[in-house]
Simulated assay, not measured.
Amino acid sequence: MNREEQFRRNNDLFKVFMQHILTTPQFSEKIPQDAEVIFLPENDPELREANLALAKQSEAEGKRVIFVKVTLVPETRTVFVPRMELAQSA
């Protein structure tokens, strides 16, 4: 995987990560300010391995690394869509 593809896939995960931070602010409290966040996606072994290599490089440079395991869980939701019609009376 080239760096551009790795960046694109990580950027997609970053969007999901930020949404999670916005809905669960206490999650970010566990992440040190100076840490590099590395995603470990369970559903994308190629990206996971590339990110592990990136983490090794960062650790070798003396940087603090925090791993975020990403698991896709199927979920079914009921979505209500408004339907409108004209009524003769209430």
Rank of each mutant, 00 (worst) to 15 (best):
L22N: 14
E36L: 02
P25F: 11
K63M: 12
Q26W: 11
P45K: 00
I38Q: 03
R48A: 02
A35F: 08
P74Q: 00
L72A: 11
Q33K: 09
V81Q: 08
A60F: 10
G62W: 07
Q26R: 14
F80V: 03
V65W: 12
M1E: 11
R77C: 06
A53K: 11
E36D: 01
N10V: 04
V16R: 15
E85K: 12
R48H: 01
M1Y: 06
T76D: 12
S89K: 15
I31N: 04
K56C: 05
L47H: 11
P82M: 07
L13K: 00
D12I: 00
M84H: 07
T23N: 08
T78G: 06
K69M: 10
V37P: 08
P25Q: 06
E85N: 10
M18E: 02
N10A: 10
I66W: 10
P45H: 00
E46P: 08
A90R: 11
M84R: 13
F39L: 03
E5L: 14
Q26E: 13
E36C: 03
S58R: 15
V79C: 01
K56V: 02
H20G: 00
V70C: 04
Q19I: 01
P74E: 12
E61W: 10
Q33E: 15
Q26A: 11
R64N: 14
R83A: 12
L22C: 09
V16P: 04
Q26M: 06
F17C: 03
N43S: 06
V16C: 10
I38M: 07
K69Y: 03
L52P: 08
K15Y: 00
E36S: 01
Q26C: 08
A55I: 04
S28I: 09
V79L: 06
L47M: 01
A35P: 07
I21R: 13
S58D: 02
D44T: 08
D44Q: 09
F80R: 11
N43A: 15
R83K: 15
A50Q: 10
L40R: 05
Q19H: 14
T71P: 03
V81D: 05
E85Q: 11
R48Q: 11
Q6A: 05
T78N: 05
F7D: 09
I31W: 08
V73H: 08
S58L: 15
E29P: 05
V37W: 00
T23C: 07
I31A: 07
I31L: 08
A87Y: 07
I66G: 03
V70D: 11
L72W: 05
F27L: 09
F7K: 10
E59G: 08
N11S: 07
P25W: 12
L54N: 14
T71E: 13
N11V: 04
D12T: 02
S58F: 15
V79D: 00
E49K: 04
E42Q: 14
L13M: 00
K15M: 02
R77G: 03
R8Y: 08
E42I: 06
E46Q: 15
R64C: 08
F7E: 02
E4L: 01
N43T: 04
F27P: 09
K69S: 06
A55L: 10
Q6K: 12
S58M: 15
M1T: 13
F17D: 01
A55H: 07
R77D: 02
Q19D: 15
V73I: 11
L47T: 02
T71V: 13
I66Y: 07
A50C: 05
L52Q: 15
F17E: 01
I31H: 09
A35E: 02
F27T: 04
E75N: 07
